[in-house]
Computed example of a mutant assay.
Amino acid sequence: MNNQVQPQNYTVKQYVKMDTVKERFEEVLGKRASQFTSSLVSLVNSNQDLKQASAASVVNSAFVAASLNLPVNSSLGYMYIVPYGKNAQPQIGYKGYIQLAQRSGKYKRINAIPVYEDEYGGWNPLTEELVYTPQYKNRGNEQPVGYYGSFELLNGFKKNVYWTWQQVDDHRKQFSQAGGKGNDKPKGIWAKHYDSMALKTVLKDLLTKWGPMTVDVQTASLADDGEYEHLEDESRRDVTPEDNSTTQAILDSYAKQQEQTKEVSDSDRSEAKPANKADQ
């Protein structure tokens, strides 16, 4: 009788100790790989819902976070690994989107805040001006009336948006599987971190519609939406030994775009390089 544990029955802790998996994380994280995978194991051990999800899907979700260089510690708010029954999916937090935007080197300023009733004086969608008077006090469980996001690029372009609380919640009910799609009451990550997820919704819409679409932001947006089906199915090599990883399709696309960006950069440098005497 063969008592060997099959890959599909591995725990997350067993997966991250496998040489092939360790090598994949080390490729993108270097010396920080061990610390990252230890954080992942701790996250799973502290979350009963994640324990019920496929370990392979959890590890692949974590690899998306690793490829974007975002921590998986949910208390930090950069990246969440959200279980949908037996399948886990990466979800970028609003701090994650801010981090990716900052890395692009194109932003002079970027911010997103909740706005409360005693602070709100009106919003003009034509001029994108918010009449806002900050009130510095402990809000407790007070519900904001809306959420404001804005950025300014180094080239001078500015964009401001304001969503009412109802607009955000309607968006959650229509699109967010993680937040209780179709339900009046938020669920899952939205129930635990409503304001953070609301700010993320506003920032994601702001950055993907009006900001520079960098490779990192595009990859984060695809992972966030679970929009894998339009990516090529060929060469979907999983981080784990299982096959047909939809997450890996995103990573393959990400790596391909990075390589294309590198090729363009190398080409630009080559064209700019002065000819030596042997070439003249």
Rank of each mutant, 00 (worst) to 15 (best):
S46G: 12
L68R: 01
P212R: 10
I189G: 02
V215P: 02
V239D: 00
G140I: 05
S34G: 07
Q52S: 10
P7D: 08
K185Q: 13
W190I: 00
K200G: 03
P90G: 08
A272T: 05
I189N: 11
Q258C: 04
S270G: 11
Y228V: 12
S150W: 11
D268W: 08
L29H: 01
R109F: 15
E119I: 02
P274S: 09
S74A: 10
S267N: 14
S42M: 10
V5F: 06
H230P: 02
T164V: 07
E227H: 15
S150H: 14
Y147D: 04
V168R: 01
A178L: 00
F175E: 10
Q135M: 08
N155S: 13
Q14T: 15
Q99M: 13
D268S: 10
R32L: 07
R269N: 08
T20I: 14
Q258G: 02
Q166P: 02
D279F: 14
L203Q: 01
G121K: 15
D243M: 12
L76I: 07
N160M: 01
P125K: 11
S67E: 13
M197Y: 05
L154K: 14
N138E: 14
E117C: 04
N160L: 03
K108Q: 15
A65L: 08
L130V: 07
D19Q: 15
T20N: 15
Q14C: 13
N141C: 04
E142K: 10
K173C: 04
Y254K: 00
K106E: 15
V16M: 11
S253P: 00
R269Y: 06
Y147I: 01
V264T: 04
Y254Q: 02
V64H: 04
E129Y: 08
V161Y: 02
D243C: 07
E119A: 05
G30Q: 04
Q91P: 08
R109M: 11
K13C: 08
A255W: 09
L68E: 00
L100A: 06
P241A: 07
S267W: 14
I81L: 08
T201K: 03
G30V: 04
T219D: 02
H171F: 11
V72N: 02
N45Q: 14
S34A: 12
A198L: 08
G93S: 14
Q48R: 12
D170N: 14
N160V: 04
I81H: 05
G122M: 12
N138M: 10
F25I: 01
Q258D: 02
D225P: 03
M1N: 13
S74R: 07
K204E: 13
Q91W: 12
